[in-house]
Write a protein that binds this DNA or RNA. Structure first.
Lengths: 205, 205, 205, 205
DNA sequence: AATTAATCGAGACGGTACGTCGGGTCTTTAC
DNA sequence: GTAAAGACCCGACGTACCGTCTCGATTAATT
């Protein structure tokens, strides 16, 4: 049997990619986003903060958006992952609760909102986000799970996801006062009612 | 009776502001946004396209966002203005219909989405948009009008506005396929049901 | 006889030129030259310092050089004027003494040097200065007077003027240390010797 | 013997300076000075003519004067270098002859006069020129050589240099008609006579 | 062990937009 | 018709970042 070249990635010649450099870039991007905001974030600044050559950054990422995407995607998925073994009502309540925290307090959430903003302004970011939007993915997973429950009247996927996250996200994007706990709570009731899901016995209300 | 000098501001000294220059800038900004997108839009490019000195642009607007805001605010308000003398259901249906057109086909809508995006990325834009968001204003006006109808169960202002426009806007911002007519239609039904508003006899359904 | 319009300049129509404005401009130019130097001197700055409209400045002077020229020409002529009733040696000594003061301590001298410099860099200044150079004029006057003395062997006009003022002016223009009294003194002796003029009995030596 | 690492500065890191870019800038500056004159010469124009980024120009030179200085300093020194193996009279005659050519026909001379002018108008240029004036240096070298000859009565350095070059330079700076051959000739005779140097047997007279 | 090849840091390269400043002109009202 | 005021168009200023391109120096895997 031919055992050579089993893994095309396994045996690259030359110096291997530096993992410390990769992490330094991701952390530098995160830190600078918080400190300066997306607009003032620059490839040059990231490289300098990371103590890394500029070419090293360009070698692995095409834009600051790609760096941020890689830096936050895993966190987004984790913070909004489906929690198993819950009733429909409890799962929905938990998701909206965590979505609220994500949008108001999480670094990953702030980064996501920045990328969503940048995607309106830069086509490359838009393409990237549309092809793998971690927030839409999490909502989609939840909606699919809920739909398997009996008696629920959940609309078609696109609308369901938009109703679930559209209101809080729009509020986070453009409201003059930040998202309130009361907002999240009432949103939960409205969605649950609209989708025919019972919220009886939930303590967070 | 000597009533001269009634208005001390009336006779400003020096050459008055050039209205043609102002309009040329607004139109140039609009055109270039469509042609190039927000990212590639520059103050320099606007000035050149408008046939205007750069200083003249900076004299009256601090950023490209301010220009776009002035260029689209009136159009937004007009396209989403409250239509008088309608039933609650008809007013709601008309608004969502026009919101759909606004988000998919209108220049003003494209500009608004770009500004909403830029506001996530640039604090100055955020401040400006939060202090006078024309889309929120239009939705607020509609919700107030609907609330005066009997029997409606509309939630508090913030949430009502977010539910009304949040889903379509989120869809426009991030969906991989553009807003569909079906989406708008189902969104109307969901909102109307949730708010206890009858849509009987509406022909657009 | 018709005595009207005898003087074509007498009765210009409209508002007459403002003498206060003219003087304010000349003084502002002088002051700013001292404060900022020639390079940083601007028409705009002169107008603002003088409390005068910019158009008023441009109406009467074509450039900052013209303003400075008008501001200093009279002073130059006065400071270097021929002093009557002196022997050749005394006249020459007095001239070189005053030239030395002019180049090192006089405002008019500083302005003249600035204009001489600007004339190398700006053709308009060069034309103006060549057509009415107050320093050359003063030297010319002195040389003419000396030439009428007996026994002097003064070279042709051009060279005589250049020998008389060229060395001190070059020193003022480019020496690393400023003009010294000793320099002036030795220059006097050299010129007097070369021109066959006696400096016996002069107390300034 | 291990003599490795003799020069710790030898291996500078990063991309080395581009010699072609340096030369392109110097030539562009020279060409544009002749074409446009000093006033109209701009850093931007030099960069564009040289086909070089503006930052590259600013990285190595602080002003157009610095560029011109570097561009002409070598030429000035070469054109006015001391010629060996001559009698005092021949050396002096040769120098004044070449000074005359320098001031009337040489590109380097035109550049020097422009810099001398700019130095009256811009302190930075003045500092630079005073710290390394190539014309003064050449005159100084000549005077030192002449002084070693017997029987010459040359005044102190400062005055000698100023007498030697002051008159022609002043003439070049401010005369309405350009320097004439006759002027140079008479200037030579006057200086030689004043300094006790014989010009017998020189054919250029 | 020597060679090869891709990485690393550093930093200069040609570009382009930034926001400001001064140039010189034009258009107001006031005198 | 001049004056002050100030907006107009223009273009250079010096800076910042873009993305690319050398450099010398590392760091493996392959000879």
């Amino acid at each position: 049997m031919d055992r050579a070249r089993v893994d095309p990635l396994a045996s690259a010649r030359g110096r291997p990619r530096s993992e410390p450099a990769r992490e330094a870039v991701l952390h530098a991007a995160d830190d600078l986003l918080v400190e300066l905001g997306y607009e003032a974030l620059t490839m040059k600044g990231i490289a300098e903060r990371a103590g890394v050559g500029r070419q090293t950054v360009y070698r692995w990422w095409a834009s600051k958006a790609e760096i941020l995407f890689e830096a936050c995607a895993l966190d987004v998925a984790r913070e909004l992952a489906l929690e198993p073994d819950k009733t429909a009502g409890a799962a929905l309540a938990s998701y909206i609760e965590r979505l609220h925290v994500f949008l108001t307090d999480s670094d990953a959430g702030a980064t996501y909102l920045a990328l969503l903003g940048a995607s309106q302004v830069d086509r490359a970011v838009a393409d990237q986000l549309r092809s793998a939007d971690p927030l839409r993915a999490s909502a989609h997973t939840l909606v699919d799970a809920l739909r398997s429950e009996a008696r629920s009247t959940i609309p078609a996927d696109g609308l369901a996801v938009a109703e679930l996250v559209g209101a809080p996200v729009f509020q986070a994007l453009s409201a003059s006062d930040p998202l309130s706990r009361r907002f999240a709570n009432e949103h939960l009731l409205a969605v649950a009612a609209s989708w025919g899901i019972s919220t009886n016995g939930l303590d967070w209300l």
